[in-house]
Amino acid sequence: MTVTQRLTMAHFRTPIFNDWCPGCGDFGILSSIQMALAELQIEPHRVAVFSGIGCSSKTPHYINAYGIHTVHGRPLPFALAAKLANPDLTVLAVGGDGDGLGIGAGHFVNTGRRNIDITYILFDNGVYGLTKGQASPTLRRGLKTKALPRPNINDAVNPIALAIVSGYTFVARGYAYDTRHLKELIKQGILHRGTSFIQVLQPCPTYNDLFTKEWYAGEDRIDPQTNKPMPRIYKLEETGYDGEVKNPSEEEEIAKITEAIKKSYDWGDRIPIGVFYKNPHVPTYDQRIATIAPQYLQSAPAWQPVRSKSLRPVADVSSLFDELRVKP
């Protein structure tokens, strides 16, 4: 059967009750993912969405695609292996900032070393929502969100900078309430050959009373001339910024990396979203495997026959035994 019908967002919805808080930024991210998949016309059964633990990690249940809700902090290892096992799959990993940068930080960093072709979307709200609002690894020092008994005394990690220095080859930031823009980032991420990382600024209406939708919209800063709020968020592409490495030279790479990291520190009154860094010239992991074992590209693990129709193993290990054989 081939799909003749054009896929729409509706094909990626499930009839499951969504128990996120009303007004949660996660809704915008969920829609953006569904829109992106629909616009790319990827059939649902070719998509696998992996998540960790937390509010945002319930996302796979709301998407009509293979949905694997894994262990806290571990969506990446599951996702990477599924992609390596069957490169035909479009693999997404999703999870919160605590999941990805706290308990899963080791996987976050090491995933950057491999450039496996998946897209990782980090729902960043600065708090651990499902456990009632503790500070997450992206909450800055000195801040006190609603549920904290004392201001946070830990420094925040910079997800964009960390992704870039870890080796991610597509690094972007979106905003949960700008779904059109976010959808485009997700599409770019999926189409990019290599590991894509998209940090999404996601207001938590219940536990993060500092970085609210209103705050991002600049409702606390009224332009005296226009009498309108001055939004904090702006789009990198609208400023002429271009984070893509055009020529594969170390010099250009370092220049783009440095520029992107510098940009990633902008916060407060001017918060950039868009593509910070993109390098399409880094070999992907499957290309690296193929330098050792060319057959990988032709015969990925999930495609190989392992037995015959009469259930016999098909691997021939006689030469391996022969290397060990005792010969008089």
Binding site: A48, F50, I68, T70, V71, G73, R74, L76, P77, F78, A79, L80, A81, A82, L84, A85, N86, L89, G106, H107, N110, P301, A302, V306
Partner: peptide, 16 residues
């Protein structure tokens, strides 16, 4: 942690 999770991820894809 990743080692077992990766084995599971591959298994989900139908691989021994």
């Amino acid at each position: 942690l990743a080692a077992i999770d990766m084995a599971i991820g591959a298994s989900l894809a139908g691989v021994r």
